[in-house]
Write a protein that binds this DNA or RNA. Structure first.
Length: 213
DNA sequence: ATCCGGACTG
DNA sequence: CAGTCCGGAT
């Protein structure tokens, strides 16, 4: 059933080609900036950084906190996000030199995940997003949307992150492309249809959903 | 005036 | 589990 929903979403929305970024580090920055924030505003912040050619680990570490806050302001939560950006960036630089080198690391995914989770400001969703979209490791990303959609459909009855992650990983092919697309498709569907206040009348899944009005 | 985003910390 | 972080949308 889990895999069937993937095929239905893919057939309906088409490939999303996530994550939109020009470098692995840009994905990391995007992951932090998009916490509790719509992507539209994150794009403005990324654009600011790119305009000053600052989308680089060393440069982010070297600019002042105030300058960083100013640049990422459009993404909101700039006080905490500026700190989190410095945190994850210095973790990467101190342990791997760069995001590209971290990607090349031979460490098992589980080890990489534990290390990411130990960085202040990186929770499960951010860790998995970095693993999947920045480091090309097959770690399924679970978010509020995933929980909402599948609990509404009646396929899941849980809010437990690790449990849901496991269910997905056990029921879809261990294929990077599938992992990346599936999460992206869930986001697309939930942001347009299966919203907090759902638009069930416009939902192409209403016939198989237990939540339909 | 309140809600809500591609959540995290204690 | 609640408290917290910002700005735009409702």
């Amino acid at each position: 059933m889990i895999y069937k929903i993937y095929k239905l979403l893919l057939n309906h929305y088409g490939y999303q080609n996530w994550w939109p970024a020009e470098s692995r580090y840009e994905v990391v920055v995007g992951v932090i900036l998009t916490q509790n924030t719509s992507w539209k505003n994150v794009e403005k912040a990324i654009k600011n950084l790119k305009a000053k050619n600052l989308l680089d680990e060393e440069k982010i570490l070297n600019i002042s906190m105030n300058e960083l806050k100013e640049l990422i302001k459009p993404a909101g939560f700039y006080n905490i996000k500026s700190e989190r950006l410095k945190e994850i960036t210095s973790f990467i630089v101190n342990n791997y030199g760069s995001t590209e080198n971290m990607y090349l690391s031979k460490e098992p995914m589980k080890v990489l995940r534990e290390k990411l989770l130990n960085v202040k400001g990186i929770g499960k969703e951010s860790a998995d997003s970095i693993l999947l979209y920045a480091l090309d490791r097959p770690s399924f990303v679970v978010d509020t949307y995933t929980k909402r959609l599948f609990n509404r459909l009646g396929i899941l009855n849980s809010e437990d992150y690790e449990y849901i992650k496991r269910i997905f990983e056990e029921n879809i092919p261990k294929d990077l492309k599938v992992y990346k697309e599936y999460h992206a498709l869930i986001v697309e569907h939930c942001k347009t249809v299966c919203k907090k206040k759902p638009k069930c009348n416009k939902c192409f899944l209403k016939d198989i959903c237990l939540f339909r009005f």
